[in-house]
């Protein structure tokens, strides 16, 4: 039993899931779900579709080089069953998973540093450039020429209500 990777989104294809397409040159394309299969049929490039692993790796969104990825690799030689080895492996899986999760979180944190400052900078620039489009309410009070000259009185509400009741 082997856990394959989806050709399109690089997620794991568990046994009994998905579709596989065999091209005439015997290359096998495995898909985890119909979404990936359909995208393949539409001839989309996974490197250009934003939700795929290929895109995220290519654009530096995810951690790509790490020693934790070395454990998950395709091995063509079947391992002979050994009870102790299996036990140790099962223990190690949890540990490795934890290490990878922390490293990935750190990677994203590092990637996001400076984002707040950048946003602030951009907002300030926009404010400077486009301040002429809006006038602050305080300015309207100072300069009466900007306000409307006529003030409308809103007081005659009673007769309207009576009409509604009739």
């Amino acid at each position: 039993m082997r856990l394959e990777k989806c050709w399109f989104c690089s997620s794991t294809v568990y046994p009994g899931h998905g579709v596989q397409f065999v091209r005439n040159d015997a290359k096998i394309f495995r898909f985890c779900r119909s979404k990936c299969h359909k995208n393949f049929k539409m001839k989309r490039n996974p490197r250009k579709v934003k939700w795929t692993k290929a895109y995220r790796r290519l654009h530096g969104k995810d951690m790509t080089q790490d020693s934790t990825f070395e454990f998950e690799r395709k091995r063509n030689r079947p391992e002979r069953y050994d009870r102790n080895l299996t036990e140790n492996t099962l223990k190690a899986i949890k540990k490795i998973d934890k290490v990878r999760a922390t490293r990935e979180a750190k990677y994203i944190e590092r990637r996001m540093t400076g984002k707040k400052a950048k946003e602030l900078r951009e907002a300030q620039k926009e404010l400077e450039q486009n301040i002429s489009l809006v006038k602050a309410p305080a300015l309207l009070k100072e300069d009466p020429s900007l306000t409307l000259p006529i003030k409308v009185k809103v007081s005659q509400k009673q007769p309207e209500v009576q009409l509604m009741e009739e």
Binding site: P15, G16, H17, G18, V19, Q20, F21, V22, R23, N24
Partner: peptide
């Protein structure tokens, strides 16, 4: 030996070919 219509495999996944 090859069919373009997909066919279920014994494990529940499906396989299809070019022609």
């Amino acid at each position: 030996v090859r069919a373009a219509m997909q066919r279920g495999r014994c494990d529940g996944s499906e396989v299809k070919f070019d022609d």
